[in-house]
Design a protein around this nucleic acid. Structure first.
Lengths: 184, 184
DNA sequence: GTCTATAATTTGATAGAC
DNA sequence: GTCTATCAAATTATAGAC
């Protein structure tokens, strides 16, 4: 697979870049700010990630792996589809409540038209992977790709409303509606 | 009311700024680019909108009024709640298909944490106004504020998925799910 | 790996003439 | 209202020493 390993310092840079991107988008990341946060100079950040697009792609790929890991397997037969959707919603809620930050690909997806092509492609791949996960998680239910799209759209939109209003209520209300679709 | 009138040139600037913001967010707008697009110099743009935050707030307010106008009255008694929700979805779809651009407040809401306070407040007001419209439009049905939040979240998230994947299918599939909730 | 130094460009913003 | 001219700051990025 295309697993990549990073030095400790590179990981510090990736984490800082992710925070800034989730708060303000691709343009909210600056090499100088990142450098100051991890205690080096901006030219040293370029050593780890030559171009900003390299950093952007790496952040999105890493975020994708982190989310998929947090989601766990979508095909554990001891679970119901409802269990899995609860977990999906929980992963998003933790991101919102614990970090106080948006989903990375919610922010980048919104400004996708202006993103460098390689970064936009990584964002596209993120959504594709999450939809695949949901697809498998819903196997054997009335769920199909369309249901998965509706669920994912609801989660992304719910995050926007919560970030824009500064309240968690919109997110929770939307999630309640999503999970109701799986109640008996 | 707080209606504001603008000169023709100011309107040209507002329209250009809206396009850039809907494509790439607040930082995608530059006074020099706007100036070139409307055929004047950047210092002349500052004459119309002294600070960038002034421009940002004006764009959001103007967008809100345009969307509310496009939505029309939410309390026409000759319509059903379903009719009104179809119109709401149609307004969003037109924005996506005709302009090829995201909803302005979907982009700005996603990066709300890093926006200047006055701009973030304008985005908050936009969502509040749309939720009020939906609230009224659903009067007399099982609809309440929570249902409205779910519908609005679905629309915003659907736009993100469609912009990020470059396809309209995710939007249409999500809208179909939303409108199904009002079918007999 | 990290540094200093620097280049080339872009940004928001202002002063003052016309 | 628009212009020229300018500023201070920030941006991505590179060259070369240690």
């Amino acid at each position: 697979m295309d697993k990549v390993t990073y030095s400790e310092k590179a990981i510090e840079i990736l984490e800082a870049a992710e925070r800034h991107m989730r708060a303000g988008g691709y343009d909210a990341v600056s090499f100088r700010d990142l450098a100051a946060e991890v205690g080096i100079k901006s030219s040293s950040v370029h050593y780890h990630f030559p171009q900003k697009t390299d950093l952007g792609v790496a952040v999105v790929h890493r975020y994708r792996e982190k989310v998929l890991t947090a989601l766990g397997g979508p095909d554990d037969s001891s679970e119901t589809a409802h269990d899995r959707m609860v977990r999906l919603c929980q992963v998003y809620r933790t991101a919102l409540e614990q970090d106080g930050l948006n989903c990375l690909c919610c922010v980048l997806g919104a400004e996708a038209r202006d993103l460098p092509d390689t970064v936009a492609a990584a964002v596209d791949r993120f959504f594709s992977s999450i939809l695949d996960w949901i697809d498998t998680a819903l196997t054997g239910t009335a769920g199909n790709r369309q249901t998965g799209t509706q669920i994912l759209a609801g989660l992304q939109g719910a995050m926007i409303l919560s970030m824009a209003t500064g309240k968690t209520a919109p997110f929770d209300e939307t999630v309640a509606g999503i999970l109701d679709g799986f109640a008996p």
